[in-house]
Amino acid sequence: MTGPDGLIRPGTPAPEFTLPATPDGRRTGPGQFRGRPVVLAFYPADWSPVCGDQMALYQAAMPEFERYDAVVLGVSVDSLWSHRAFAEARGVRFPLLSDFEPKGEVARVYGAYTPQGQAGRALVVLDPAGTVTWSYLSPAEVNPGADGILDALDQLGTERQVVAR
């Protein structure tokens, strides 16, 4: 189920996937983190301008995400080697997944692939059961920040008091 912008919508079970996350070929995906909220941060490319960089910001904001026990996974079509150099340069320590081959396959499934051959700047929050609870597509040139993600995680907290896990 997708919205008018094509992005996967709340209420949809998140399609399962794993992607390579480290150069040794180890794969990571949201299913490994059931029981915890998962934030999927699709982004167009490594190496966007310094200081306004979305992934660097999320690393700096990690203590806030950790308050919700949330896992953050970055996803772009860049290769593992680009991800590794980028992560080192920006001090990013959460996993950056490589949607490289077949190119953009996961981004397509989530409705976050663009005609430019990159992932869109899409945020998808999954609840601990793996259901999409919030999604947002930002213009490619606008870093969406972390406030929307934290609001979605807040809402998850409220709902969890009503719906027993």
């Binding site: 919508r9 709340p10 209420g11 945020l123 609870t133 919030w134 999604s135 947002y136 930002s138 969406p144 920040g145 406030d147 929307g148 609001d151 979605a152 809402q155």
Partner: peptide, 13 residues
């Protein structure tokens, strides 16, 4: 599920 929240950019503090 409620309406999607919008990403805001207003000073909240």
């Amino acid at each position: 599920m409620s309406t999607p929240l919008q990403v805001t950019a207003r000073l909240r503090v």
